[in-house]
Computed example of a mutant assay.
Amino acid sequence: MDHILLGDGYASGMIDLGGLLVCQISSFNKVWATHEGGPGNLGASFFEPSPLPHGFYMLGCYSQPNNIPFYGWALAAKPTKDNDDDPSSPLLRQPVDFTLIWSSEFLNIKKDGNGYVWLPTASDGYKAIGLVVTSSPEKPSLDKIRCVRSSLTDECEADLWIWGPGTASDANGFNVFSVRPSNRGTSAMGVFAGTFIAAQQNGGLSTVACLKNAAISNPQVSMPNLTQIEALLEAYSPFIYFHPDEVYLPSVNVCVLTVYFNGGFLQPSKMAENVEGISKRR
Rank of each mutant, 00 (worst) to 15 (best):
G55V: 02
Y116S: 10
W118M: 13
P120I: 01
A128L: 13
G72A: 12
L100Y: 06
L42M: 05
G115Q: 05
T80I: 07
D84Y: 08
A122Q: 08
G60A: 13
S89G: 09
E36L: 07
N108L: 15
S135G: 14
P49G: 14
D82E: 09
G37S: 01
V133Y: 03
N41P: 01
K139D: 04
L142S: 04
A122W: 11
G130Q: 03
I129C: 09
V117K: 02
F46N: 00
D86A: 11
K111I: 02
P137F: 02
S50I: 08
T121N: 10
S50T: 12
S141Y: 11
L75V: 06
L107M: 08
N114P: 14
Y71R: 12
T80W: 00
D124G: 01
S89R: 04
Y62G: 03
C61I: 08
D124T: 11
Y57S: 10
I101A: 13
G37L: 00
Y126F: 09
S50F: 15
A74N: 03
T80M: 15
G60Y: 04
K144F: 13
F47Y: 14
V96E: 12
G55T: 01
W32G: 10
T134K: 04
G113A: 03
A77N: 04
Y62D: 02
Y116H: 10
P53D: 00
G40M: 12
V117S: 07
P51R: 05
S50D: 03
V96T: 14
L42T: 06
G43L: 02
V117Y: 00
P90S: 03
G55H: 07
G125Q: 01
I145V: 14
W73I: 11
V117F: 10
N114S: 13
K127N: 13
D143G: 14
K144T: 14
G130R: 06
D85F: 07
F106H: 01
T99G: 03
Q94D: 15
K81T: 08
P39K: 05
N108M: 12
S123E: 04
G72C: 10
E138T: 15
I109T: 07
D124M: 12
N114C: 15
G115E: 08
S103R: 01
L100E: 15
G72Q: 04
P79D: 14
S63F: 02
E105L: 11
G60C: 14
D97M: 11
D112P: 14
Q64N: 10
N114W: 05
D85R: 10
A122F: 09
G60F: 13
Y126M: 09
E138L: 03
P69C: 00
E36T: 02
Y62E: 06
G40T: 01
K144R: 14
Y116P: 10
D86Y: 02
N108W: 11
F70E: 08
D82R: 05
A44Q: 02
L92F: 10
P87E: 09
G55K: 02
L131C: 03
L100Q: 05
P53V: 01
Y62N: 04
E48V: 09
P51W: 00
N67F: 08
I145T: 09
T34L: 12
G72Y: 00
W32T: 05
A74I: 09
Y126A: 06
V133W: 07
Q64C: 13
L142G: 04
T99E: 15
N66V: 06
D112Q: 08
T134G: 07
L119N: 05
S88P: 04
P140V: 12
C61N: 07
C61E: 01
P140Q: 04
I101H: 09
